[in-house]
Design a protein around this nucleic acid. Structure first.
Length: 477
RNA sequence: GGCGCUAUCGUCUAUCGGUUAGGACAUCGGGCUUUCAUCCCGAAAGGCAGGGUUCGAUUCCCUGUAGCGUCACCA
């Protein structure tokens, strides 16, 4: 397990090269990724984090990680460390780290200030649960004018005001009438802030210049605008990203129906680089339509004008293609070690054999986990289904067995040559012959090149598999 | 229902008033090939609808339609 402290030390060092003061404004761009520690990393969150990272790093700015752990009920043990580890794995390294539960004092003070200045009030109503009660059209809170002295703190939304901001993703001004904004809770009765208070306090405090967040936050932006104003600060620039939609339902990705967790994809055999690249293009595009990027290249070309405004659907086709591209571009040794982590049986193989197999597989894989099926026959005798064979297979196999038996120099060229000689003299159809051989050795019709595979398997093993099928075939029709 | 966002091939997208509307994935066809792949070549496929503005709209405006989001002491 990676140690976050070491990481920070290590990466701050690295980030120093990136950092410089923006000469034009004399201020540095600062963005943040602010997840709640409630479980695995959502694919949409990875994208948000990526964009925030790129936005900052393109201008040599700072990228902060802020854990929003203000809801004790939903917090998941170990989620914070898992989050740090996976972000690190993807190369999204933060310059500063914060945790909201360690800053409770600040929120409390902010809430008190707002009450004192008349912009918020105490409320002792029983909390409602929208999930079970449905949507509500009651905007003004009954405690608004009661002047209570304790309880939860709620925002006193003004009447007849227009609340607006310029969204840098949508590139337009978005506004609301304050009459449509509800008196949101800022501080819960347990003393913890809600998101609405905590973002404003923190973003001001941490000098965040750009808020980049999911589209689902757009409707509550007017609340934040008010809090920023009442806290006496200037709101950062704000941009709302599109939602990623399910390819099947066309609705926001859901944990129940769709695969949404980054860890899941990694386990399924997708490379971090491919995942990052895929997610980059789901909601952002460069002018020249370039498709394959390393992280460094992303940082270099990232442009705030490239954001997409319409919700994309999460189709896997392109991810699969990209993953294949990345696998093919991987140095053999790297692929090999990834294989070792994917499959223990592969790892147990002789090192030289491992590399040879890797070489054969590299061009025919979509995911790392394809290793488990494509190369299974290397470490496990196949369960050969006789009905798979075509005509003349018995003859084919007997000839193959004979040729293999007579080879002294166990080399690919020799095997090729001897086999072809006999195929010719026997008058076999080349394709048919090799298909019989392929099925007998691997149990499958689709495999890596069969002669190469046979060389890797070894003479003894090959003969064993061949004779096993030949003897079985004698008892069959 | 209120509020808000959005609308180019099946999918991801380019275009910032004038283009045969371009690319990629997927699909289909062909080449290479002992299978499957990889690789190469080619094809089919798109501006939600109706009004404006304009010499000219995919592009700007309005309306409609559709989709998405949100309306908690969750983030």
């Amino acid at each position: 397990m990676l140690n976050a402290k070491n990481l920070n030390a290590k990466f701050n060092l690295k980030m120093i090269e990136y950092r410089y003061m923006n000469e034009a404004t004399n201020s540095i761009i600062r963005t943040r990724f602010a997840p709640s520690p409630t479980g695995f990393l959502h694919i949409g969150s990875l994208r948000t984090a990526l964009y925030a990272f790129l936005l900052a790093k393109h201008e040599s700015g700072d990228f902060l990680l802020r854990i929003e752990d203000t809801d004790k009920k939903r917090e998941v043990e170990g989620a914070e460390d898992a989050l740090k580890e996976i972000l690190t794995k993807f190369g999204l390294i933060w310059d500063e780290f914060y945790k909201q539960s360690e800053r409770l004092e600040k929120y409390l003070k902010a809430a008190q200030k707002l009450v004192e200045e008349g912009h918020a009030f105490y409320c002792q109503c029983k909390p409602k649960n929208a999930k079970v009660e449905g949507f509500s059209n009651v905007l003004r809170d009954p405690c608004r004018d009661k002047s209570l002295k304790s309880g939860a703190v709620k925002l006193r939304v003004p009447e007849n005001q227009t609340l607006s901001y310029f969204d840098f993703v949508h590139k337009k001004e978005i506004s609301w009438k304050s009459d449509t904004v509800y008196d949101a809770t800022l501080l819960k009765s347990d003393g913890y802030p809600t998101y609405h208070l905590a973002v404003a306090v923190d973003d001001l405090d941490m000098k965040i210049t750009h808020i980049l967040r999911g589209h689902d936050w757009l409707p509550s932006t007017p609340i934040h605008l008010l809090v920023f104003e009442y806290l006496g600060g200037k709101a950062p620039k704000i941009g709302h990203l599109t939602d990623i939609l399910s390819s099947e339902t066309g609705k926001k990705l859901s944990k129940r129906r769709d695969s949404v967790f980054v860890e899941q994809f990694v386990n399924d055999g997708y490379l971090e680089e491919a995942l990052l690249n895929f997610v980059l293009l789901l909601g952002w595009a460069p002018k020249d339509n370039k498709e394959l990027f390393t992280l460094d290249e992303m940082v270099k070309v990232f442009d705030i004008n490239g954001f997409q405004e319409a919700n994309p659907r999460f189709f896997m086709d392109k991810l699969n293609w990209m993953n294949g591209q990345y696998i093919r571009n991987l140095p053999m040794e790297d692929l090999n070690s990834k294989f070792q982590m994917t499959n223990a049986k592969f790892k147990a193989l002789d090192n030289k054999k491992q590399l040879e197999i890797t070489k054969l597989l590299q061009e025919r894989m979509v995911k790392l986990t394809d290793l488990n099926t494509l190369a299974k026959f290397f470490w496990e005798k196949p369960d050969v289904d006789i009905s798979l064979f075509g005509e003349n297979y018995k003859k084919h196999l007997e000839v193959a067995n004979e040729v293999v038996n007579n080879i002294d120099e166990w080399k690919l060229e020799v095997l090729n040559e001897k086999l072809m000689e006999r195929i010719k003299s026997e008058g076999f159809k080349v394709g048919d012959f090799f298909m019989s051989l392929r099925i007998a050795i691997t149990g499958m019709k689709f495999t890596p090149p069969i002669n190469d595979s046979i060389i890797i398997l070894g003479k003894e093993e090959t003969i064993e598999r061949l004779t096993s099928v030949i003897t079985r075939s004698k008892t069959t029709k």
